[in-house]
Design a protein around this nucleic acid. Structure first.
Lengths: 382, 382
DNA sequence: CTTCTTTTGTTCGACTGTGATCGTTTCAGA
DNA sequence: TCTGAAACGATCACAGTCGAACAAAAGAAG
């Protein structure tokens, strides 16, 4: 097909593997092939093609029919009895074993049990080199049939890591990561929370409570942050709140004064701009922020409404903090589902990419109108 | 179905497995078949069809009736009836019953069978008002537990329709549609092909074949078109092909001269800009375009390489056209999976949004370097 | 270089899928 | 209930495909 219909393939004959690849190509193009036709086209004997077809059929890639082969059809009951060999092992590499990820792992474990799969979990640092080391270790020492991983994607190292993952001989599912469009990671599947949707949900909630200046406090050290910021911005735009007048601070860039000083700085900004509500990424930080507000004599939510992001510890604070809760269990669950389906169906299954919407859990820190509805007036004077 | 109802399938006959698959498709599309009708349509004897029906009936996939067959009916207790449990009904409203959607429906039906669900399909026009009418009809007359729909999303009517769908008391899954971010359709789940990825894949393929000016011919009447154009643009940017020098025409805006004149116009533009390859949306149009090129004495792929988009009829052209093939069966399959999981798990399950990557099927119309590699030079002089 | 292993080709009897014939069964209308 | 038309399936025949056994060729290892 792609080569001219040379009955004698110029000089070099194909290796069997290439031939089978060709055969699959032909099959994808036409849906079916005849042994005779392919044998003539590739310049080999029909028996050879038959043997190839048998091999491919054993792998479940094609269905054998009298006279040729077709793409695997569900009507083909030949390999229906497969549940015996169902015991695959999946490697899982996550960047933390105490924050956020335990729940993801738990969801994955539960689903793996359901599907009769084994899962091997390894912790890693938030950095591409260590990600790769951990993955390599799994590949070397265990007999991994698939990989679920949440790699560091920042910088050139991150992109290089993605390219490497894309070339692994086993299926790979990314958890809570979406490769940027410019990296040709066409084989990588992923499942990720739509954090930008979650942030937007929080902003809309605060708006409905009466807030008209809504700030955002993030931690750019986390890969989640950019998405939260994007969602916050989009929501502001949708509510027609001008971006210039809005507080956006990042705790990774805090000065030498440490956290307390940085929070004071944030509160000062809020005072100046009339900001009465904050979306705080990582609810750990939200807890600290609320504590700081209370220490400074501000009422939460009266003077400062707070919505946290992640919902790991938000319920522990006093007052309890409203938080966006990513469906962590489901991230793990879906990752395993994607992997199981991929292992069962093989390459013919198209690459799946799943986004999950988070929930907004309302607690005390954000319900009730701001004590100074003048904030609305203040905005109007801008 | 997608192939014309050729009473005599020119030359090429189907394998038995394909025939049975065809039969099941026909069955899913119409609910019942007659032996005589199918035999005529497939160009085989009635006896052969009867044998096929017997085989399928033995596997419990169809119910035999005098004169033909129907989809497996619960009334048929010829074989061990399945453990009939929660039998939900799903409504499905699609904008076309001849192009693209039959395969989506077929995939949905197959999965529904697996999950023991009932599906009721309705065709609709490509317009929001009729979409709503069809959905309403399903809601009123049938007892629908869930809805799969591919609505028209253009304009204010489209947004209004989405808002309405979002408030329905039953779960809704969109097929091949992604609601724009600004519509608060937070309950709507969807599954859609990543057309922009597919277009990018096609462009990268053409680049690798040696083309340096790659144009795009679309039909903006289709909801798919914008995504194809976006993918084409992104890919051009990634290959550093300037957008201004590239041919981008839309057949919906063609002048009064009709198609032929428009194609001449496109070819003239290609000549002027040194464009040697075109990505053509809707492979129906690609077939016509290739035909036109051949009529005008251009070699395909030598003078003009073509990749179509959709892969409905691309293989019928002469030369056979390479095409991006959306995983239509899987779109239907995943839609039903999402619906089944939603019906089983209820509200606690987070909203899922699934993207699927299409395949690139290589045929004759795009493989082989351009005859005038000077195109590269021409670009360098720009 | 030899020897072993893997891959490919040839022959030929067995087998499968399809269609024609024809007697039997089922259906629909009177 | 009867009756004619249609559908059905058992049987046979034929063409074409399949695979076992063996032989030959091409690499790989020593």
């Amino acid at each position: 097909m792609s080569t001219p219909p040379a009955s004698v393939p110029a000089g070099k004959s194909l290796f069997s593997l290439q031939r089978r690849e060709r055969l699959m190509e032909e099959l994808r193009a036409h849906g079916a092939i005849t042994v005779r036709g392919i044998a003539a086209k590739l310049g080999v004997s029909e028996l050879t093609i038959r043997r190839d077809v048998n091999i491919l059929a054993d792998e479940g890639l094609v269905s054998r029919v009298h006279g040729g082969a077709t793409l695997r059809s569900p009507l083909d009951r030949s390999a229906a009895a497969r549940p015996a060999s169902n015991s695959y092992s999946i490697g899982m590499v996550v960047p933390s074993l105490d924050y956020y990820w335990p729940q993801v792992i738990s969801g994955a474990r539960a689903e793996a049990e359901e599907q009769n799969l084994r899962i091997l979990v390894r912790g890693s640092a938030y950095d591409a080199a260590d990600n790769r080391r951990q993955v390599q270790a799994l590949l070397d020492t265990q007999n991994i049939d698939g990989l679920i991983v949440a790699p560091d994607m920042t910088g050139e190292h991150g992109r290089e890591l993605l390219r490497w993952l894309n070339t692994l001989p086993i299926p790979v599912v990314l958890a809570e990561r979406r490769p940027p469009a410019e990296v040709p990671a066409h084989r990588l599947e992923w499942v990720a929370t739509d954090h930008s949707f979650g942030a937007g949900m929080a902003v809309r909630h605060l708006w409905q409570e009466g807030h008209r200046q809504i700030g955002c406090l993030t931690d750019s050290a986390s890969p989640t942050s950019p998405h939260v910021v994007r969602g916050w911005r989009q929501a502001l735009a949708a509510m027609k709140i001008p971006l210039e007048g809005s507080v956006h601070e990042d705790s990774a860039t805090q000065g030498p004064g440490g956290r307390a000083e940085h929070f004071d700085h944030v509160l000062e900004l809020c005072r100046v701009t009339g900001t009465t509500a904050m979306l705080v990424h990582s609810d750990t930080q939200a807890v600290a922020f609320v504590q700081h507000c209370v220490d400074r004599g501000l009422q939460v939510p009266g003077d400062m409404a707070v919505v946290g992001y992640d919902d790991e510890v938000a319920y522990l604070a006093e007052p309890a903090i409203s938080a966006v809760r990513p469906p962590k269990q489901y991230v793990g669950k879906v990752a395993v589902q994607l992997m199981a389906a991929r292992l069962a169906e093989g390459r013919q299954r198209p690459v799946h990419r799943v986004g999950l919407n988070p929930d907004l859990i309302l607690r005390d820190s954000s319900v009730g109108a701001p004590r100074v509805p003048a904030a609305g007036l203040l905005q109007e004077t801008l």
